[in-house]
Amino acid sequence: MQQTMAHHDHDHGHEDHESLKVLGFWIFLVTDCILFGTLFATYAVLMHSYAGGPTGKEMFQLPGVIASTFILLTSSFTSGLAMLAMHKGKVKQVIGWLAITAVLGLAFVVLEVTEFSHLVAEGAAIYTSAYWSAFYVLVGTHGLHVTLGLFWMAALMIQLGKHGITAVTKRKITNLGLYWHFLDVVWIFLFTVVYLMGVM
């Protein structure tokens, strides 16, 4: 009897601790928000500093960007489906939806790399002008976040397969979900400020 009691307490302590880590992750996202805010401000200041080089309007090809926007939005939706499956306790479904999310995320990164290499080939590289420096830093930082998220997602899929849905894996998936939605929100601002306002 005593042992089962102790065991129960043990789990309870763990769950408290897991919720603590979700709160910490929210605060991390606040700092990430400031990070992107600073990059957006930098971009806004340098938005017209082409230094005689190519402008965004001349270089952007919207169809590709719109495609990657929809891909990322869809991946946010599928990561939400993974969360729903997690709350129902269905491990295989969680892994499945995460896998789809990861494939979509990978497609987004591939499109971004393609876009960057195309831009560089056309003569708009990071050293071309202040405008392009700010562009690559802002868009690239978001892309780097998505790429790191993919590694994280892969690690969590393996852990889900190993441990199933526990308090710990639940917390990890929750944080990953927060991260992924956050990147989606950042992209919406990025799409508006950089691409839409860029071609206007």
Binding site: D32, T38, I126, S129, A130, V137
Partner: peptide, 27 residues
């Protein structure tokens, strides 16, 4: 986070030849 970004931008200027804070290239 502002410090992190600021120093990262300075490093990108120095390392990759970007023009965020330079005198030329619209920085």
């Amino acid at each position: 986070p502002i410090l992190t970004v600021t120093l990262a931008l300075l490093f990108i200027d120095r390392y990759l030849g970007a023009h965020i804070f330079t005198m030329d290239g619209g920085g």
